[in-house]
């Protein structure tokens, strides 16, 4: 049935893509795992005695605080994105088909614009002499400019601004898929509006929520340029710690261990996402 000619084509394609992934994804990641169990060396970056010092260092109360603070900011970002994005995606799914296309287009336009430049634009707005303070002062709401720039809040605003579309898009797609009939059925059975929301809508949109959380939480821990520009080089993210360890302090094992924490977080979120999808599948069947 299969012609002979297809084999070399198929083999060549598979070799190409597997080669690429093995050489540029798998191998490098194994290197990072390897680096994380080696010893810091001031001259050659890494040296031999294998140990878990880097991981122990992660749980040093001092660094733990850095991590928890970064996690806190990423979690806040995700929460804000969810709070804004959930009703947004719902409202979006209610709009007429034609208008929906335009609105989605408008949502991804900022995503196609350079993220550094957009972060910088936020600085113009949040600065002491910036537009927001000038506006608030000119309408007499405040007398003294608010300190907005170089705060934890500024970092979170920046992250939310950059990552919001990543929360909205997966949520929108689950709202689109939500079966209208299912809601009607729930109504017919006498469930109130609130009860419908809690028992039907929330569980059904859970995969979308988790996909959104995954798409927001992970970058929110890594985008090191946001604290650099809006946080006054304070309020560091895990990404800043990793970058500093690799490019300033030259402690590669520790930087590698910190990056593995991110990978593990990702694995955990992916697992939760799969699980939620499977459960929905079972309930639907």
């Amino acid at each position: 049935m299969h012609s002979v000619m297809q084999q070399p084509f198929k083999t060549a394609v598979l070799i190409l893509v597997w080669g690429w992934l093995l050489f540029l994804v798998l191998a490098p990641n194994l290197l990072v795992v390897g680096a994380s169990v080696m010893t810091r060396d001031p001259v050659s970056f890494l040296s031999l005695p294998l140990n878990l010092d880097a991981y122990r260092q992660l749980f040093d109360p001092l660094y733990l605080e850095v991590f928890l603070h970064s996690l806190y900011m990423a979690a806040m970002t995700t929460l804000v994105c969810l709070l804004i994005g959930y009703p947004f995606a719902w409202a979006l799914s209610k709009v007429g088909k034609q208008r929906q296309l335009i609105l989605i287009f408008l949502l991804i336009v900022p995503f196609w614009t350079n993220s550094l430049v957009r972060t910088y634009a936020l600085k113009l707005i949040l600065a002491t002499n910036g537009l927001l303070n000038s506006a608030l002062m000119s309408i007499g709401l405040i007398d003294e400019p608010l300190q907005l720039l170089y705060t934890e809040g500024a970092v979170i605003i920046g992250l939310v601004y950059l990552l919001l579309p990543f929360m909205i898009l997966p949520l929108y797609s689950v709202f689109e898929d939500l079966k209208q009939e299912l809601l009607l059925a729930s109504h017919d059975l006498g469930a109130g509006r609130f009860s419908t929301f809690v028992h039907v809508i929330v569980p059904l949109t859970l995969p979308g929520v988790l996909a959104g959380v995954m798409l927001v939480l992970l970058p929110a821990m890594g985008l090191f340029f946001v604290p650099d520009i809006l946080g006054g080089s304070r309020n560091l993210l895990v990404g800043n710690v990793i970058k500093n360890q690799f490019l300033d302090a030259r402690n590669w094992p520790f930087g590698a261990a910190a990056s593995i924490v991110l990978t593990v977080t990702m694995a955990f979120l992916m697992f939760a996402h799969r699980l939620s999808k499977r459960r929905i599948g079972e309930e639907g069947a």
Binding site: V25, P28, L31, L218, P219, G239, S259, T263, M266
Partner: peptide
Amino acid sequence: VVMMSPEIVLAISLLAL
């Protein structure tokens, strides 16, 4: 996984390679 990976993880692994 590549699509989901935080960029910084990809970055340092490629640098190491």
